[in-house]
Amino acid sequence: MGCYHSKRTKKTPGYEEPTVLAAETPFTVSEVEALYELFKKLSSSVIDDGLIHKEELQLALFRNKNKRNLFADRIFDLFDVKRNGVIEFGEFVRSLGVFHPYAPVEDKIHCTANLLSDYMIYGKLVSLNEKRRLKEMVMALLHESDLLLSDDFVETIVDKTFRDADLKGDGKIDPDEWKEFVSKNPSLIKNMTLPHLKDITLAFPSFVSKTEVED
C-alpha cells in the first residue's frame, strides 16, 4: 500500500488528471493512464525530468537521439502546443487524441494540413501555397530516402499537386479545397490513425488503474 501511495503522489511537472484529459479526448480514463506509462518511459529516456524533449522524441521515432529530421521537427511542434521546447503530459495526450482511430476525420484532415504547412498556423492553410517550401520538403524527403529525382521533375510534381488541389485556381489552397483534396487522396491521412492507440492499455498496463480496481 505504501508503494501504491508513493506511486500516485509522485507526478511529473505538467501532469493532468486522466479524468480531465479523457473528457477532452477520444481516450478513456484507463487509456490515459496507460498513456502516462508510455509518457514516463519516453520522458525519461535521455533527461529524466518528466518532460519529453526533442531528442527524446527523435530517439523514440528513429532510435537515434541525434538524427535531425524535418518531419520529426514538425511532429514535435504539433505536440509542443505551448512552444516552450518540451512536451508535457497534457500536450502529449491531447495531441495524440487526433491519432486515435475514433477521432473525427475532420480533425485528422485539419491536423494533416498543419503538419504539411510551414508555419503551423492552426486552422489556416495560408502557407500551403508556397510551392518553393513544398519543393524543399519533397527534396529533403527524397534525400533522406536516397532517391534521386531531377530538380525539374520534382518541380513538375509540385506544380501538378498544386493544380490538382487549388480547385479555384486562385493560387492558394483553402480548408475546403484541402478537404476535397484529401477525400480524393485518402492516403494523405493514413498516418493520422494509429491502431496502437486502441490497444494502449494492453501495451502499457497502468499500475494505478489496476490498483484502483482492486480497491
Binding site: 508510455l38 518531419f71 501538378k160 494509429l194
Partner: peptide
C-alpha cells in the same frame, strides 16, 4: 515523357518521419 502521377503532399505525408507508430514499440 510519362504523365506525372505522384502527389507531393502524399509523398510527404506517408514518409517515415511522420509515422508515430514507433513511439509504441517497447
Amino acid at each position: 515523357m510519362a504523365p506525372v502521377t505522384m502527389n507531393a503532399f502524399e509523398l510527404i505525408s506517408t514518409s517515415q518521419g511522420l509515422n508515430l507508430s514507433s513511439l509504441f514499440e517497447k
